[in-house]
Amino acid sequence: MTGTSPIGMAVPAPRPGSADRIRAFASRYAILLFLAAVVVAGGLAAPGFLSGSNLTNMLMQFVPLGIVVIGQTFVILVRGLDLSVASVMATAAVAATAFGGVNADAPAVFATAIGIGAAVGLVNGLLVTKRNVSPFLATLATMIVLQGIRFAWTQGAPSGNVPPIFRTIGAGTFNGIPYNVLFLLVVAAAGAAALHLSGFGRRLYITGGNPLTAHLVGIRAARVTLAAYVVSGVLAAIAGLVLAGFVGVVDNFVGRGFELDSIVAAVVGGVALSGGKGTIAGALTGAAILVAISNLVVMLGLPVQAQIILKGIVIIVAASFYVARRR
């Protein structure tokens, strides 16, 4: 976005020469250019794609994924991975139905969801930092445990409703702009500020980029890593409430597929699984690409199966691109 890297060090200026400069520009903004290409191509191929109602529709689908991707980015930046996000989303949504379903309960619902997300993030983070469990296994295990608890609690099918205010946040619009988009903007701004402007963000990038350096400069890497998992858990819980409000019904599988989609989006957006590299803006762009492609498949009348196939191709191509660029 700017001439500095996320940890505030100056990026070497591209060598002079217009070809080099164009290449450097294309390389840095490749992901945005790709999104622009998808949008333009989509607009040309499917007339309804860029219509106001379809854009609103895409934005609403984008928001829950966007919130989860922001949390996932925190975790991937410290060389982690959070497979439990979808389970946290569903658990938060199911817990939300346990209250009276009136607006007066909204603060309690919100607090409960955040409590669940923070608790799961804490368990994930402690397993990773204290027991040295690989992030993949730690979050896989909490995902399974959480799923079991949810099934046992609901005995299969949850009943009850979320307070109407969540329905408004999740599905309502204000002059054509969905409320939940405003909500995402707030979360994204807070996340970006935490990552790119605060001392915590700097420590996070150093911890993920080079643990040895982090140790040498006196960063308590375990604490930073733990915080990243808590952020991911809390944001997943919030996304669960937003998605439940958007869909209008809560079942045991709210957010199914979000664990993999959020990882795909982050990787497509340039967040490196090797840690320390990536931005919130990039990750959100990755999420936007996924949503746009899925929507485009429907608008073009292609078989829905093409969505998954394209998703698979996009992630491999994008990841290869980043690996090749970093060499």
Binding site: V267, L273, I308, I315, I316, A319, V323
Partner: peptide
């Protein structure tokens, strides 16, 4: 590609 097997097989699995 040099891409992590987790990502590659996630992609091919989707395909």
């Amino acid at each position: 590609t040099g891409v992590h097997p987790l990502i590659v097989t996630l992609g091919t699995g989707a395909i």
